[in-house]
């Protein structure tokens, strides 16, 4: 069962999500890109990660300390081991154990 309104909304969302993802990959010519712009684009992943983590990670609970413990656990595990899955499962385990305190 699907309402027409919802269907239109989903199609519209799909189009406006796909276009910004597609335009640079299909239309940007990487051969003639100025070195400064190239340097900026190479910086983007690290800057984006910073912005994707903060402040969002601290705001997952009303109490900022909950997210802060998550961030510190994840960084500690990441510096010790390195495997992505260990970091994800490990920090969730820490937070699950501490959840009753919050």
């Amino acid at each position: 069962m699907m309402s027409v309104d919802i269907f239109i909304i989903i199609i519209g969302m799909a189009v406006v999500t796909y276009i910004p993802r597609m335009l640079p990959l299909v239309f940007f010519n990487t051969k003639h890109i100025p070195p400064t712009l190239e340097g900026i684009l190479q910086n983007v992943p690290y800057a984006a990660l910073g912005a994707l983590i903060f402040p969002g990670a601290l705001l997952i609970h009303d109490n900022v300390v909950f997210g802060l413990i998550g961030v510190l656990s994840a960084f500690s595990i990441a510096f010790l081991s390195g495997s992505l899955i260990t970091v994800v499962l490990g920090s969730i385990a820490v937070l699950t154990l501490l959840t009753p305190l919050f």
Binding site: Y46, L49, G50, L52, I53, G56, A57, I60, H61, G67, G70, V71, A74, F75, I77, A78, F79, G82, S83, L84, V87, V88, G90, S91, I92, L95, T96, T99, F102
Partner: peptide
């Protein structure tokens, strides 16, 4: 509650 942290943990693991 704790699993909402999963994707942030992934980003941190990638950045660290």
């Amino acid at each position: 509650q704790s699993m909402t942290f999963a994707l942030y943990a992934l980003f941190i693991a990638l950045l660290a």
